[in-house]
Amino acid sequence: MKKTHTITEALLNLLKDPSQIIRNWNYKGAILSGIFRAPIFFITYIIGKESIRIAIGAALVQFFFRFFYAGISGAMVQNFRHVEPAWKALTAILLIIPLVSHGLEFIFQSVFAHLTSTHQHTDEAIIRSICVTIISALFTLFVMRRGVMIVGEIESKSLKKDILRLPALIFQFCAFIPNEIASMIRRNAFFAAFLSFVGFGIFSQLFVWAVTEKFYWTYSGGKQIPLLKYWGIDGIILLLIATVISLAIPPKNRPLEVKSSLESSLEEIINIDELKPVEKL
């Protein structure tokens, strides 16, 4: 697969030779996606008090669809894995893959829902599937930029070796944002750190709301804890705790004079200098 280092190169590479996503079909992503996505539909249908037969049918439809499409989407993500800065690759992936993926998914699952009269459960499952796609796209790009879950390249390893590396990469993935924010704070980039906390809080609120279909959580038959009942607030608190832990651990092999990728991305998106008042002559 041709290496593309800019977003323009990556997009042109796909447009000039779209058949490459079939030739470089990512069997690793296909297998794992099918295994992890099918249970979402199975559980959703079971929770909806549908029969085991219908739940298994919905799961099988999802498995075969994901097995086919995840191989294609994996090839697409791999095409963007060398793009710099990383946020541009991520933006393109989050725009392209969910749009195509869930458009097709909606068609397949809607046909199944029509045949089984289970439209409500299908809609719920697709919403949850979209949430999984967001995290999946983030994680896939993260690991592919580290040479894992790729196919057809010199750096490619066997699926077994990639799976053995996944636990450590999952930990690094979860620690990525706290580490980046900690790096910002060490550099006194407090505004960028603040934006990161706010953004994560908004994302947490919307994400968990979509998955649970509840705007906030309760306990003991409807009791609430002011402010803490909101998913976004809880997300910010957890991120704050993780960031404090990251600050307590000295960074290794990461020079402080080099800006973190997240900070650089924020500064590129929002030009801080433009926000400063113009000095009067």
Rank of each mutant, 00 (worst) to 15 (best):
V198W: 09
L164I: 04
A55M: 01
Q205S: 14
L141A: 00
G201I: 03
S183M: 08
Q172A: 15
R186K: 05
G235D: 07
R66A: 15
E263M: 00
L281H: 13
F197D: 11
T6K: 04
F80T: 08
S19C: 08
R146L: 10
D123R: 09
L164P: 05
L138M: 11
L227H: 09
H114I: 09
F191D: 01
S33K: 13
N253V: 04
I54G: 04
A55G: 04
G201Y: 12
P167G: 10
S136R: 01
I7F: 12
V244C: 09
R146H: 13
H114A: 12
A59F: 03
R186F: 05
L94W: 08
L169R: 01
S264C: 06
W87D: 04
L240A: 06
A59D: 00
A189Q: 10
K252C: 01
G232P: 09
R254P: 06
F197P: 13
V77D: 06
G221W: 00
A38Q: 10
H82F: 07
S220P: 02
G199H: 14
M1N: 13
F176V: 14
F142I: 01
F64P: 08
L11G: 01
P255R: 03
P255Q: 01
R53P: 06
V61S: 06
P167C: 10
R37A: 15
A38R: 06
M1Y: 12
A38H: 06
R53H: 15
L138F: 15
L228N: 08
L166K: 02
F176Q: 15
I47R: 10
L12V: 03
I154G: 09
G152T: 08
S129C: 03
I47A: 10
V61R: 05
L15I: 14
R23N: 15
N253P: 06
I181G: 14
F41V: 05
I245G: 07
V208C: 07
R53S: 13
I177C: 14
H82T: 02
I236C: 06
I21Y: 15
G221H: 00
G103P: 06
L206N: 08
L195A: 07
L240N: 09
I130P: 02
A10Q: 03
I237M: 10
A38M: 12
C131W: 00
E267R: 02
A86D: 10
G232F: 02
P98G: 05
I126N: 07
S110T: 08
Q109I: 02
A168E: 14
S33F: 14
A86P: 02
V83E: 02
L32G: 08
I43G: 04
A89W: 01
I130K: 07
V77S: 10
L238I: 11
L247K: 07
L281C: 06
R186I: 02
N188F: 08
A38V: 05
S260R: 06
S196Q: 14
F68Q: 09
A86L: 11
Q120A: 11
A192R: 05
E213G: 00
K3I: 13
F194M: 08
Q62F: 08
Q78M: 05
R165S: 11
A192I: 09
E257P: 00
M184V: 02
L275R: 01
S265R: 00
I22C: 12
S204M: 15
T118H: 11
N79W: 01
I241H: 10
F112V: 05
G57F: 12
F173A: 05
G199C: 11
A175E: 12
D123K: 04
S261A: 06
A182H: 06
H82D: 04
F42A: 10
H5T: 07
N179Y: 11
